[in-house]
């Protein structure tokens, strides 16, 4: 910041103008893109089933310029197993980690002292970098008085963009085996979606399971989130955790009961008692489990299933 803008800043007028511009810019950019996340506390409740079938229905029945399904479960991306399409783009995704330059280093230990993640260690007269511990914050690199830790690209995974139909696109990112941090790749995938599509796009995010950082990265700033659960004590317990997460984030959300059966009441009572909207149910059917096992879409294979997804689509849009 130069001194002129600092002075302007202090006069508050500048700051107000700055905010108006910024929020206007954001509004114009994302105002007409709708983001819906499909999440769940517990794994295996049917996030992927719901995502792929719902995206198919939405692209067929609604008049968005494009419907985009993005698989953000980068540790185990599965949505692509249910969709066939033309590969439009494939790119390797990197993040930045420091690389030690022995010649420049004076062994001052500034880097190891600033690193909060123990990603740098001194071993005798050398510095060891542990890339899996590094959070790419640049502190060590930029605070090094000798520029002895330049940031270098490190591969973390791959993004693929497919065209499924003229109305439906599919994007998946896949973390390389042995790469531990999912969040940076999820972030880059969301950035890709933001940069690639413009107005009048409906985006469905297939989120990872759980309630920790990767999920937050996938669901934050979504206009709506669908929490998928199943009517078992495990499903119910994890649903409550997922609901707490959404409330903490202040996200709008609703619930879908998958493998719905005679035990639905525990979920329904909880939703009613807590003013949580039930977006729909998907009944338990062995045929559905079999179709899923073969990588088939339920809305194509089992005609009676279609209406359940249509109901959910109507409620979330």
């Amino acid at each position: 910041m130069n001194s002129l803008s600092e002075k302007l800043w202090k006069t508050k007028k500048f700051s107000t103008a700055f905010f108006v511009c910024n929020s206007l810019k954001n509004y114009l950019k994302v105002g007409f893109m709708i983001h819906i996340a499909v999440a769940s506390g517990k794994g295996g409740t049917g996030k992927t089933t719901l995502s792929v079938n719902l995206a198919t229905i939405l692209s067929e029945k609604y008049n968005y310029n494009k419907t985009v399904l993005a698989d953000l479960d980068v540790e185990e991306p599965n949505s692509g197993l249910f969709l066939d399409g033309k590969l439009k783009l494939q790119e390797v995704k990197y993040r930045m980690v420091p690389e030690w330059n022995e010649e420049k280093c004076t062994l001052c230990k500034r880097c190891a002292n600033v690193c909060e993640f123990n990603a740098l260690a001194f071993l005798g007269f050398s510095v060891l970098v542990f890339p899996e511990l590094c959070h790419s914050c640049y502190a060590c690199s930029e605070l090094c008085p000798e520029n002895a830790l330049p940031m270098k690209q490190r591969r973390m995974g791959e993004l693929k963009h497919y065209e499924i139909s003229d109305k439906l696109d599919f994007i998946e990112s896949r973390l390389d085996i042995g790469v531990e941090q999912a969040v940076p790749l999820i972030k880059l995938t969301r950035d890709y979606v933001k940069e690639t599509f413009d107005n009048d796009t409906l985006v469905i995010y297939d989120a990872p399971p759980g309630t920790s950082c990767p999920v937050i990265e996938a669901v934050k700033k979504c206009e709506n989130t669908i929490l998928v659960t199943e009517p078992t004590p495990f499903g119910f317990n994890d649903l409550k955790l997922a609901v707490e997460t959404m409330q903490e984030l202040g996200n709008k959300f609703g619930v879908v009961i998958n493998r719905s059966d005679a035990n639905d009441k525990i979920i329904e009572d909880y939703c009613n008692g807590n003013n949580i909207e039930l977006y729909g149910k998907i009944p338990f059917m062995r045929e559905a489990a079999e179709a899923y096992s073969k990588g088939k879409l339920l809305v194509d294979e089992i005609p009676v299933m279609r209406k359940y997804f249509e109901t959910i689509a109507e409620r979330i849009i």
Partner: peptide, 23 residues
């Protein structure tokens, strides 16, 4: 983020790297 002229940390985004603290 800068909110009404004040600098505020978005706790969900903060990674705890302490870079800001050092500068």
């Amino acid at each position: 983020n800068v909110i009404n002229g004040d600098f505020v940390v978005d706790e969900l985004n903060c990674e705890g790297c302490s870079y800001c603290f050092h500068v």
